[in-house]
Amino acid sequence: MDERLSVLVLDDEPIVGRRLQPALAKIGCDVEIFEAPGPALERLKEKAFHIVVTDIRMDDMDGIEVLERVMERNPETRVIMITGYATVEMAREAEAKGAFDFIAKPFKPQELRDVIAKAADSLGFHGVAHAAVPDVP
């Protein structure tokens, strides 16, 4: 598959986007960063992203609602939830509503890359899994 993997990152803390953008670009993803759910959902109407990475606890709308909207619009999109306030209830709710995976903060970018590689693999992007392995001797 020649198409590049498109990833939308939504987190109301600007630093999260700033840190994840280079970490995901490194494995060949086209990354778009959003800090508010409204504009992110507008963008999702225009473009079907392969992967959405969203925070759960946000002021305007929570990540579970974002997940529901994404699943309604494009069930093929893999949604990865990230949060600093994870609970088993929250993780299982996200799972029941179709989230691909759930990551508790703090996490290392490699942890997210590993999950993205699995999500990409499930979408037929097998090269990402290989690229996700860090260049360590």
């Binding site: 630093i15 840190r19 703090p106 290392k108 970018p109 490699q110 860090p134």
Partner: peptide, 19 residues
């Protein structure tokens, strides 16, 4: 154990670790 640091937004440094 990982500790939550506000300045990173919960995303730790992207330093490749020797496995």
């Amino acid at each position: 154990s990982a500790a939550m640091e506000a300045r990173t937004g919960g995303v730790e440094d992207d330093v490749p670790e020797a496995r």
